[in-house]
């Protein structure tokens, strides 16, 4: 591999040096880190964040932000859980969760794309609404009555990979292909790069902007169902602590908040960084609150590095 292809690789994936450093560091500090068992637990613990981070990436690429994504995960999980408790059907539960995610996404998308409202404020409002719905519907406690099939789905592996992570990988692949191989994906990138120029090119900018919020909501719905499979119950507060992890993963990966620069694969790496870090620090027995400090520092360092590398 020549020098220039290394430079190119780092430009496309500016977070690679950090991942490499973390892997080397934790492998040398803990003998359990680099084992199949640990890999499995990392994958199990991070599929929800990964799926949501894909949605957040799409929104970031247009220069927006979806602050509601975390509590929409909670709300859709509760909706799915309640429906499953009534019907004992995973199909109806999933349909209801996806529909709920879609509606939240539409609400954001129409407000931002068609009415030109600020994404930060709009999605903050939606976040509160979703949180309220999650706690009201569940009466503040875990929704019981998850069908056995879904519980099994949450634990079983295919070729050593948990099914719920396969859902995540599937979503990553589909969305990556959509970004690189479809006109829609190209238009999302162009819109994020310069929305006025996109309008002058005859691109339906309202539709493009709306579409990413809708997808983000839909992916939050999938993440909500995956959270039930992962945790066994629909929890009304499941998404509450995830927002910073989701945004952190996207940013660490090197997708720009201003839009037009970034990719889903970058986000995969960004999420991997935070996942590896948590796992490694847990193995080393570092207390939770100290971990937060390390996470915070890493986001500073990683973000700076990502911005520098992707711009050189």
């Amino acid at each position: 591999m020549g020098m220039s292809s290394i430079v190119k690789l780092l430009k496309s994936y500016p977070s690679l040096p950090i991942i490499a450093a973390l892997l080397v560091l934790f492998s040398s500090l803990s003998p359990y880190f680099f084992t199949a068992g640990n890999a499995e637990s990392i994958l199990l613990a991070n599929s929800v964040v990964l799926i949501a981070a894909v949605g957040m990436t799409l929104v970031f690429l247009t220069g927006g932000i979806d602050l509601s994504i975390a509590t929409v995960i909670s709300a859709t999980a509760v909706v799915g859980g309640v429906v499953m408790a009534q019907t004992d059907s995973v199909f109806w539960g999933t349909s209801a969760a996806l529909l709920a995610g879609l509606l939240f996404g539409l609400l954001n998308g129409i407000c931002v794309g068609f009415f030109g409202l600020n994404p930060f404020i709009t999605t903050m409002g939606t976040a509160l609404v979703a949180r309220g719905i999650a706690f009201t519907l569940s009466e503040g406690i875990a929704v019981k009555g998850t069908p056995e099939v879904l519980l099994d789905f949450g634990f079983e592996l295919l070729w050593g990979i948990p099914y719920i992570m396969i859902v995540g990988i599937f979503i990553v692949v589909i969305c990556s292909l959509a970004m690189s191989k479809t006109t829609w994906g190209r238009q999302v990138m162009l819109f994020g790069s310069n929305r006025e120029a996109a309008r002058y090119c005859g691109i339906n900018t309202r539709l493009i902007e709306t579409s990413v919020y809708v997808l983000s909501g839909l992916l939050a719905g999938i993440a909500g169902m995956v959270s039930i499979a992962n945790l066994g119950n629909a929890l009304p507060g499941v998404g509450d602590t995830l927002l910073l992890l989701i945004i952190g993963g996207v940013v660490l990966g090197g997708t720009h908040m201003n839009g037009g620069e970034g990719s889903i694969m970058r986000t995969v790496l960004g999420v991997t960084i935070l996942a590896t870090l948590t796992s490694g620090l847990n193995l080393l027995g570092i207390p939770f609150y100290d971990q937060l400090i390390v996470q915070g520092v890493l986001i500073f360092v990683g973000y700076t590095l990502a911005m520098k590398l992707s711009r050189t």
Partner: peptide, 12 residues
């Protein structure tokens, strides 16, 4: 302002 997608490639 409304012509170039300045961060994107000549191709795009």
């Amino acid at each position: 302002k409304n012509g170039m997608f300045s961060g994107r490639s000549v191709k795009e």
